[in-house]
Design a binder for these strands. Structure first.
Lengths: 140, 140
DNA sequence: ATAGTAAATAGTAATATTACTATTTAGGAG
DNA sequence: CTCCTAAATAGTAATATTACTATTTACTAT
């Protein structure tokens, strides 16, 4: 976690207690907390933290590549995931919203370099497979 | 578009005027309409169509793999894209929300087959590269 | 340590998305 | 063509997310 704080500092962002609390909550509520769950967890230590602050900090962390936002289509809200070491992607059930990690990543650095040559600076990527899990398959 | 209607029929879904209108709007408002834009377009022909109907049909089309939902992290709402022939993915600017298509797709059928062996039926996948476009790069 | 400054925050308002219910309707059977 | 039934819809309520503004606070330089 000190890595994240150092990165924030280096980029010129302030280390507020609220910001630290959001990062802590992301780790404590793993895996896949919603913004609301993060907010609830943060409020244990700091009851006055607003929802806006949680969302604002999540957005910042996403922009820095520290957090992944995993979208569950057709369900309310997204879930979040802190980028803790091992890079991976997800299978997401379109029926029940269940997400699970897969270690597979086919993206090659060469292609990222190509995007950069086109004037686009890549900070992260996400790959999601959508479908139906074992439990939901009969219904789908 | 007849392909989409035929698929819906084959799966047992009804071909309502509202549903046809949503599909038409997806094509007419290309690229990357929001749900609100689709709703506005649909209301031209059918003023009483509710927002709920638009969202419900988008969800259905997503579940069938006919539509992609492209999430723009930290911005309000998602944008949608009808799956019209050529499979592709996206570069998304975290600052201004601009999305552009890239023809690259590294996902190999073999890996999809592996997920299926684990009991997960894959209907689609999405790959997004997040970063900063040429215009926003100085600020990022 | 103190003051200055821009960033961050709390609280609230606005918007986007999803859930719910009574009613309507598409498509199939007779 | 008419009836039947489950699916789909409109309208509304509930929830999730983002935007805005006055105030507070972390950090820098003195």
């Amino acid at each position: 976690m000190n890595d994240f704080l150092r990165l924030l500092r280096n980029k010129g962002f302030k280390l507020t207690p609220q910001r630290r609390a959001v990062i802590e909550a992301l780790q404590a509520c793993s895996p896949f907390p919603t913004a609301q769950e993060i907010h609830r967890h943060v409020k244990n230590r700091a009851p006055d933290v607003s929802l806006d602050t949680v969302y604002r900090n999540l957005t910042l962390l996403i922009r820095l590549g520290i957090v992944n936002q995993v979208n569950l289509p057709g369900r309310s809200g997204s879930v979040f995931e802190i980028v803790d070491g091992n890079h991976h992607h997800h299978l997401i059930c379109l029926s029940c919203g269940h997400a699970e990690c897969i270690d597979y990543c086919p993206v090659i650095p060469q292609k990222i370099a190509q995007a950069e040559e086109r004037g686009f600076t890549v900070v992260s990527h996400s790959l999601e497979f959508y479908g139906y899990c074992r439990a939901c398959r009969p219904a789908g």
